[in-house]
Amino acid sequence: MLELVHLQVLSAALFSIGLYGVLARRSAVLVLISIELMLNAVNVNLIGLGAFADRPAESRVFGQILAIFVITISAAELGLAFAIILKLFRSRGSVNTDELNLMKW
């Protein structure tokens, strides 16, 4: 019996894996990939909550609408972030997050 809690636990697992990747990895590309994992986990939660809501069928798709907006924003964010990464690599020769301390002093 598939229940809402199963989806929420799956979403929490995916989110925390992405959080670990954001905090523990060194390459900025990996940090962005982990952010995509976290956004995907949020989408799982939204669609699951919408699908299991005790509402009429036409209200049940609100979660999917929110998920489409999340997907769109994440695509825009990813394009911009990779443009910034390319620029950083051209100007500094490295995309490791511990070497990007230009604003520090």
């Binding site: 929420q8 636990v9 979403s11 929490a12 697992a13 989110f15 925390s16 894996i17 959080l19 670990y20 990747g21 954001v22 905090l23 523990a24």
Partner: peptide, 14 residues
């Protein structure tokens, strides 16, 4: 730090 934060967040959400 990442492992601790990920574990705490997932436990809180679950």
């Amino acid at each position: 730090t990442g492992a601790i934060a990920a574990t705490l967040v997932s436990l809180a959400v679950i």
